[in-house]
Design a protein around this nucleic acid. Sequence first.
DNA 1: CAGTCGATTCACT
DNA 2: GTGAATCGACTGA
Length: 228
Amino acid sequence: MTVASDRTPLDRSFFDRPVLEVAPDLLGRVLVRRTLHGPIEVRLTEVEAYAGEADPGSHAYRGRTERNAVMFGPPGHAYVYFTYGMWHCLNLVCGPEGFASGVLLRAGEIVRGAELARTRRATARGDHELAKGPARLATALEVDRLLNGTDVCGGRGAGREAPMRLLAGDPVRPSEVLRGPRTGVGGDGANHPWRFWIAGDRTVSPYRAHTPRRRGPTRRPDTTSGRT
DNA sequence: CAGTCGATTCACT
DNA sequence: GTGAATCGACTGA
């Protein structure tokens, strides 16, 4: 018998803890995304922690920039970035403020609004693939840079109108949580086991090691042909 | 200011 | 398993 998911919104104190404590605690929680066409809800099954300016794998490494500014702000806000010229990824900022930590939401199970999600994720072969991967999750939830900085704890008055909220859901038992190295992270940041996922869940994305960019001859404009 | 490459995904061999 | 797609942030000169 399945216990009904707890729809109590999580408040800011949930995020105002060390990121390595928050990350595994996010598994089984439910993120509600309110779109123009209706709500989409995802039960988080895979996350990764990024731990401050000293973490070589983090966008916050080497300090604050315009892009990563949200990570340096208060916990409970969304850090959304654009990558590979076509994808968005969604993070939730953790405490303490100024430490620049965040949790990348890597995968989840769409538990409401699958039809809506499917319109943006037409190539998904099954519902379990709708949010199987960080860019897929952001796409399924219609998350883009406009949501960067969004308060997911919904301050006063933001309640029902908030574009994103995090609900208590059904946190998983520690015995169900596995951890390992972060996906796609290279260099000195590769070895920390800061990726957390729910054991045996089909919506968890496959691990991939960092793939260094193929170094080819740089194609520069051919100045030896054409008119001179 | 130009070069490099990314917390990825998809099509194809 | 390999390579392309695609653009903007970041870096170093």
